[in-house]
Write a protein that binds this DNA or RNA. Structure first.
Length: 538
RNA sequence: CGGGACGUAGCGUAGUCUGGUUAGCGCGCCUGCUUUGGGAGCAGGAGGCCGUGAGUUCGAAUCUCACCGUCCCGACCA
């Protein structure tokens, strides 16, 4: 929101009116403008307008933009650098658990998608369909689709059916199992309400697909991958997550069960950050994935699929960022240390730059989180303050400013992004020795802060009145900030789930793992096998 | 896809109700000078067919209609 608007809302008057009526108030007004601008880099703040704040953070950090194609974003270098780090870390974890990468087609024949009834129901509404193979100019010179395909092709919204088709060829004997495959790909889901990183028509993800000889083994696989995701979310994204299972209503179309990780954003809404599905024999029956067992009997395989997407970046943004912009956890930051030369005088410039380059080289020789420290010397010809704030908005974990006086004293001026960019001087060698500890401390602090926030806004609730109270906005002008995670006893009757959705716009996010203390359903008074987590969600 | 709000320079916006000089302003950008441990100051400058297309009118950023896009709410979803 522009300052003029804030001013007009706060004082009920407009700048233009002020100009002619009262120049003293105008002066006061611009004074506030200056203060407001210096207070934080992102406007509006989270408190003022959370969805708009999110957009502004993405823009200020130069992560991504909308494009001429509705719902499709361009991921810019800083954002893509984060994705590359996410991808590399996960890829390593998948390989460590025995999976191999492959690549399957972008296009899926319509008939394939049709094979699994529930699957079709789930995705039919959001498919991009290719019906023609070329363009021909009409009499006005306008290109028109021509060469209609015999069978339309669907741009993959997910790949179970096409991969199943290929798996059916590859699996013949129990000796071929387990088959453990992953692919890194783009998928398309024609979304009606796109939002950068959180919900776009095209997005990047990985999808793991496996076949097993028994249900038990397949179920174990989904559990294992859920824990890989949870481990990654907490240790890399510094994003605490609930591990749990989806209710039938929230399950993946075609799955027997869906496991998920759920995170709490700063507006206290839940974000589904990863899912892992036990598909039973639904897809192996639909696709013909059969194998001969030890006793020679032919059986259908038991399959799983699991995925995380660029949505994780949206989760990262909404977990850690503040009113000065993005905050990137050190493990994922494309640049972990930004070295900013301060060159007030021409005659010392060369020395300062040289010192910065030297520090950069030395830091790159160090290892943090099992990889070399990622350092960048920002020697662009920009004023110091301007340059510093750009890095704050990008969320770089550490800024190191070095000027002529530091050269004399052997000091550096270090800013920690997780402490709101608070800066302090320290000895150069001390910084050099502790950079690893600093980055680890930031990583830990971000997680601890997020975990404390999640805990603060998670509540055991045992009466319907209290539950409704919890999800009723205190201030109807900012309804998005209220509630949080409510842990309630529920008898698993679908009608109550529907009622929650209708009355409060909240859903059962998950049945947390290991939640087995019986209680009394707060709707029916019947018995409940354990608490479930209820929240508003993205 | 339903309801609402909104589209004016890279970003944020005034002007629209009540049609009428050359469409203002802030940030950013370019040039020069001055500054220099800090999101600089002064001076000058570039950048808009006012979302697109029709219509009403002597005249449209302003009124009417359609379309496109953005944001919010709903349905849907990683």
């Amino acid at each position: 929101m522009a300052f003029e608007q804030i001013l007009s809302k706060t004082f009920g008057i407009q700048i233009r009116g002020l100009e002619s009526r009262n120049s003293q108030i105008l002066t006061l007004g611009y004074g506030i403008l200056k203060m407001a601008k210096q207070k934080n880099a992102i406007s509006p703040t989270r408190e003022q307008d959370y969805p708009e704040w999110y957009q502004q953070v993405v823009r200020a950090a130069d992560l991504a933009e909308n494009t001429p194609v509705r719902g499709c974003m361009v991921i810019k270098p800083w954002g893509y650098g984060i994705w590359e780090n996410i991808r590399d870390a996960l890829d390593k974890m998948f390989k460590e658990t025995g999976h191999k990468n492959a690549y399957f087609p972008l296009f899926i024949p319509k008939s394939f998608l049709q094979r699994e009834a529930e699957h079709v129901d789930g995705f039919a509404k959001e498919c991009a369909v290719v019906t023609h193979s070329r363009l021909e100019a009409d009499k006005d010179g306008i290109l028109q689709p021509a060469g209609e395909l015999d069978e339309p092709l669907i741009v993959r919204p997910t790949s179970e059916t096409i991969i199943g088709e290929l798996f059916a060829r590859w699996v013949q004997s129990y000796r071929d199992l387990p088959l453990l495959i992953n692919q890194w790909a783009n998928v398309v889901r024609w979304e009606m309400r796109p939002r950068l990183f959180l919900r776009t028509a095209e997005f990047l993800w990985q999808e793991g697909h496996t076949v097993h000889a028994s249900a038990e083994e397949a179920i174990e696989e989904t559990r294992q991958m859920l824990h890989v995701y949870a481990d990654f979310a907490e240790n890399w994204l510094a994003m605490p997550v609930l591990r749990g299972e989806k209710t039938e209503a929230e399950r993946f179309p075609g799955a027997e069960s869906t496991l998920c990780i759920e995170a709490m954003m700063q507006d206290r809404k839940a974000l589904q950050a990863g899912t892992s599905h036990f598909l039973g024999q639904n897809f192996s029956k639909a696709c013909g994935i059969k194998f001969q067992g030890v006793e020679g009997k032919e059986e259908f395989g038991w399959t799983t699929s699991w995925g995380v997407s660029t949505r994780l970046i949206g989760g990262m943004i909404m977990t850690h960022s503040d009113d000065d912009g993005l905050v990137v956890p050190p493990r994922l930051a494309p640049t972990q240390v930004a070295i900013l030369p301060v060159t007030p005088k021409e005659n010392t410039r060369a020395q300062v730059l040289e010192a910065c380059e030297r520090l950069s080289t030395e830091l790159k020789g160090q290892s943090v989180f099992d990889s070399p420290v990622r350092v960048e010397v920002d020697d662009r010809d920009l004023r110091g303050g301007e340059k510093y704030w750009q890095w704050v908005k990008k969320g770089v974990p550490l800024t190191v400013e070095i000027g002529p006086r530091d050269l004399e004293n052997g000091t550096v001026f270090v800013g920690r992004r997780d402490l709101g960019g608070k800066r302090e001087g320290m000895q150069g060698d001390e910084f050099f020795a502790s950079v690893g500890n600093l980055l680890s401390a930031i990583q830990k602090n971000l997680f601890d802060q997020a975990a404390a926030f999640q805990k603060e806004h998670t509540k055991d609730i045992d009466s319907k009145e209290e539950l409704y109270e919890f999800f009723t906005p205190k201030n109807s002008s900012k309804p998005e900030i209220h509630g949080g995670f409510a842990r309630i006893h529920w008898d698993r009757q679908v009608q109550w789930e529907e009622q929650l959705k209708n009355d409060l716009k909240v859903t059962v996010r998950c049945i947390p793992e290991g939640e087995s203390e019986p209680g009394t359903c707060l709707f029916s008074g019947d018995s409940s096998p354990g608490r479930v987590v209820v929240a508003k969600s993205y």
